[in-house]
């Protein structure tokens, strides 16, 4: 360190004066006070807000209930969902759908299988499809979005043109095409179809916020500091860009439930009706929709409720993670 070359700056005198003033004031140092409590990170403060958010709690309750039901479906279901227990009650001409009876609160379907049990076990397929579809599209979107957003330039152009082409096809149509191309439809073709349909949305979203981060002051600050490229991307740009993507993922969970149902409804899902699925149940119910609407109502209500739960969570997450709402 070199000596101060300046003669005129009466540093010592100034400091003495300030110190004297601060002493006189007695309490506040120049910089002001800092509370002696542990720091609160962004995630912690978002969680604090969420904990008090009624909308989030409702969404969370619905989602957790759904997860528990799916997890413990075999224990919860009163009967074997594949057993044709009420087959003897089915009268193809006069009464094709047996109504509620003791032990069968919702009645049975056209081959005498317990409706409640099928709904409960059906949650597993729905959960499997929506979680994996969202996860795969999220991973794919993260990779493409990070590539495009972190490097920009021609990599960005190539990736984004590809993504644009995918985006130009309506997502459900894209999912139908992918599912229809599969030789043997199964839940995995549904998952694949939905993840391909949503991948470009994640990619574009992430790329957008990564680009914004690239030009942000704190990334410039990290560059000015001499931080290496990889930590800048993975420690600064990516984590700060994830907020909107996480929110979108919650919302995609909801739409994936509906899309999966739609694909199964159209017969592009798992054809094996020994593995019940809500969309597939809905599809099967359409033959009887005028006389026995309850057959369609229950699976439809389940789909709506679960999608609603995910959406509530997503919306409150969006609000909690929005820096503008923070105080």
């Amino acid at each position: 360190m070199t000596d101060n070359p300046k003669g005129w700056k009466p540093g010592a005198r100034r400091k003495a004066k300030i110190d004297a003033l601060a002493q006189a004031a007695g309490q506040v140092q120049d910089a002001g006070t800092v509370a002696d409590t542990p720091g609160v990170s962004l995630i912690a403060s978002a969680w604090r807000r969420l904990r008090r958010d009624r909308v989030f709690l409702i969404g969370l309750t619905i989602t957790v209930l759904f997860l528990l039901v799916a997890l413990f479906a075999p224990l919860l279901a009163p009967h074997d969902p594949t057993a044709r227990l009420l087959l003897d009650k089915v009268r193809p001409q006069s009464n094709p759908i047996p109504g509620p009876e003791p032990g069968f609160p919702l009645g049975a379907d056209n081959v005498g299988r317990d409706l409640l049990s099928r709904l409960i076990v059906g949650s597993r397929q729905t959960l499997l499809v929506c979680v994996f579809a969202t996860l795969f599209s999220l991973i794919g979107g993260l990779i493409l979005g990070t590539l495009a957003g972190a490097f920009g330039g021609w990599i960005d152009s190539v990736v984004m043109r590809f993504v644009d082409i995918m985006l130009s096809i309506p997502s459900l149509l894209l999912a139908f095409s992918v599912a229809a191309m599969a030789a043997r439809p199964s839940q995995w073709t549904v998952i694949l179809a939905i993840s391909i349909a949503y991948l470009p949305i994640f990619a574009r979203l992430l790329r957008g916020s990564m680009l914004a981060q690239r030009h942000s002051d704190h990334v410039l600050a990290a560059r000015a500091l001499g931080v290496k490229q990889a930590p800048i991307i993975f420690r600064h740009m990516l984590p700060n860009s994830l907020g909107p993507v996480i929110v979108q993922a919650t919302l995609v969970l909801a739409t994936a439930v509906i899309d999966a149902a739609a694909l199964s409804f159209l017969g592009l899902g798992n054809p094996d009706d020994r593995q019940p699925e809500w969309g597939q149940m809905l599809g099967a119910a359409q033959k009887y929709i005028y006389d026995y609407p309850h057959l369609a109502f229950y699976p439809a209500a389940c789909i709506i409720l679960v999608a609603f739960g995910f959406t509530l969570m997503g919306e409150s997450l969006r609000e909690a993670l929005d820096p503008k709402s923070r105080r």
Binding site: R13, L21, A25, Q27, V28, A31, G32
Partner: peptide, 24 residues
């Protein structure tokens, strides 16, 4: 030298029983 006002508005006292500016 400039003579700064120490602290920031975060250090204010409530007006009810004091002068808000007293800490600074």
């Amino acid at each position: 030298p400039l003579i700064p006002i120490p602290g920031s508005v975060a250090d204010n006292l409530p007006w009810d029983h004091a002068c808000a500016f007293a800490p600074r």
